[in-house]
Simulated scan of single mutants.
Amino acid sequence: MAKVAIVTGGSKGIGRAIVSGLLSKGYEVYNLDIGQGDQGHFIRCDVTKSIDVNAAVKTVIDQFGRIDTLICNAGIHFSGNIENTSTEELDNVFAINVKGSVNAIQACLPVMKSQQNGSIVLMGSDQCHIAKPNSFAYNLSKHALASVGKTTAIDYASFNIRANVICAGTTETPLYHQAIDNYCARSGANKEDIHKEEAALQPLGRIAQPEEIADLALFLASDKARFITGSLYNIDGGYTAK
């Protein structure tokens, strides 16, 4: 029997790479996203709305009767310090990055509890550990996700449900390019120069590719990681070791 996985935000970037990787391992994969995906089973879903998430998860359960893996990947980036981040902007970052993950976890926990098994992977960031300039709201949301992962791991270990957080460093995704484009538009900087500067900041001399982050997600979802829970996994080219 094929294992069943849900990936939020699986249409682009790291999420798309995760969906592709899970499919290659024989999973039935559901991608919950607001933008059309081209792999697996796609359900249009706004993760900030619990009614949408609950309906999507019910669709999965009605078809397969189980959920083995939930990967909470949906998220947005936002640049700004505390002074120039509005209440509305802060609410939006938290609604997607944190509430979206909470909604998905809450919807999946009942079936995982009933089957006495499940793996939850949250897409954190190197900013689960450190601060970066002009990253108040984003950094706050990623620290919150670290807490979600650890508390969920403790609260549901007795059900054999594991929860772990991937602390990814700078990764070449559409989100990455959008952030650089926005910065260049504001500052007049050259995009290629900024890209080179970002690579040079990493001890390994480059930024990550989505497939590399996906490989870690697949491992944490698998039975090979069956004794790993409540962990924050750095995959950042050595950035946070400096």
Rank of each mutant, 00 (worst) to 15 (best):
F94A: 02
A74Q: 07
L109S: 11
I120Q: 01
I51V: 14
E83S: 09
F94L: 04
P110V: 06
G118S: 10
V53E: 03
I61Y: 08
T87A: 01
E83N: 10
G124A: 08
N134Q: 07
S79T: 00
K113P: 02
Q115F: 15
I105V: 10
Q116D: 12
Q116A: 12
D52I: 14
Q116N: 14
S86Q: 10
T69H: 05
L90Q: 03
R66Q: 04
F94K: 03
L109V: 13
R66T: 02
S114D: 13
K113W: 04
I67S: 02
D126W: 03
F78L: 07
M123I: 04
I67V: 10
D46Y: 02
G100D: 07
V121T: 04
Y138H: 06
A74H: 04
V93K: 00
N103Y: 00
F64L: 07
V57M: 14
N97K: 10
N54P: 12
F64W: 11
T59I: 08
A137W: 00
A95C: 10
I130C: 06
P110F: 06
S101H: 10
Q115R: 15
L70R: 09
S125W: 07
L122I: 15
N134C: 01
S79N: 05
Q63R: 13
R66M: 05
C45I: 08
H77N: 15
N54R: 15
M112I: 04
F78P: 01
K113V: 01
V53I: 10
D68I: 11
V53M: 08
N54K: 15
H129M: 14
N139Q: 10
Y138T: 02
V57N: 13
G80F: 09
V57S: 13
L109F: 13
N103W: 02
T59N: 09
Q116E: 12
V121D: 03
A131N: 08
H77M: 13
Q127R: 08
P110Y: 06
S101F: 08
N103L: 02
Q127W: 06
A107M: 11
V102K: 12
K49Q: 09
N117I: 05
K99M: 15
N84Y: 08
C108E: 06
A74G: 10
G124T: 05
Q116Y: 12
T69F: 05
S119T: 15
A56D: 09
V111H: 13
T69A: 04
E89H: 09
I71H: 08
N134Y: 02
I76D: 00
A55D: 14
N103C: 03
V60M: 04
A55S: 14
C72S: 02
D91M: 01
A74C: 09
N84I: 05
A56C: 13
C45N: 11
S135Q: 01
M112L: 07
N81H: 12
G65K: 10
I61C: 10
C108H: 05
P133S: 06
T69N: 05
S86V: 11
K58C: 12
V102N: 11
F136Y: 11
G100C: 08
V121G: 01
A74M: 07
V102Y: 14
T87D: 01
D62H: 14
N92V: 12
K58A: 15
S79H: 03
V53G: 05
G124F: 00
I105S: 02
V47Q: 12
